[in-house]
Design a protein around this nucleic acid. Structure first.
Lengths: 140, 140
DNA sequence: ATAGTTTCTGCAACCTTTTGCAATTACCAT
DNA sequence: ATGGTAATTGCAAAAGGTTGCAGAAACTAT
């Protein structure tokens, strides 16, 4: 598994400044076991750097998203979650009943992307999709 | 094409009160040619009923969504859009480059839903999806 | 080490949407 | 028509996220 420094290095390579705030934001994202929200990132960075501003967190996330270094997804719950792009490429099924989140690998989406390309010449950008519905236990 | 009264009647049938605000909100939705935002609905209702509150609009939209009378989708642009559920069931392709919105009928999503049911026993709730990517003109 | 440049950040205001609470009112029974 | 009930609404605050602007600071050249 790649180290946080890899994204840091990549930012530098791409000509972006490495500020303390950014390094800490990147650490928070990389150190999270799962998806992490902006508010959670902010709280972790605040613990070490009380002057950081929430708008800096959002701006950094926007930059990382644009550079394909993180992916964002809406798993419900009223806030967006983030995830390092390099930590596997996958999607999720979210049960609207019990809230369970099921990992979904790329292959099922691949046929959709292929069909969109074939029939609409559209290149779908399905990076981190969340599909809502009802799971096996809740569909009775 | 169904008349606004149909949804009004359905609300009544389901035991919900028909308030002037709701009737006007429903009219605004039904009378829109395309997708309509909460803010646009609010502006239309405000024109005839200056005391209506934006939170009433959001609450009514939430109710209609829950009752499958409208569908909501995020076509980008920083706000959610709504659309009568009975006015055809479809999805969209949204080009991140030029912003064009391409209608996408149900059939391409049907195979995805079938696969999710078959391989995960998951009943996907794909009511009004927006898939982002790049269109034929922007994929060069 | 210093100065210059340009990116980045903090601040405060703003936007879209949600929520708790008390007052209003649609509906129903009489 | 009247009274009662409970759903609905308006209000104001709040939540998650965005943005303009001016000052701070990362980076580079000397």
């Amino acid at each position: 598994m790649n180290q946080p420094e890899d994204i840091v290095n990549k930012l530098s390579e791409l000509g972006y400044r490495l500020t303390p705030q950014r390094i800490m934001i990147l650490s928070a994202i990389e150190n999270s076991n799962d998806h992490i929200s902006a508010e959670e990132i902010y709280a972790q960075v605040m613990a070490k750097y009380p002057h950081v501003n929430i708008s800096t967190v959002y701006r950094t996330l926007e930059l990382l998203k644009r550079l394909d270094l993180v992916t964002e997804t809406d798993l419900g719950g009223g806030r967006v979650r983030y995830h390092p792009a390099e930590k596997g490429h996958h999607h999720h099924l979210v049960c609207q009943e019990c809230g369970i989140i099921i990992d979904l690998d790329e292959s099922l989406l691949t046929s959709l992307k292929d069909a969109l390309l074939r029939e609409h010449k559209f290149i779908a950008d399905l990076r981190h999709l969340a599909i809502f519905g009802r799971c096996v236990n809740c569909s009775k």
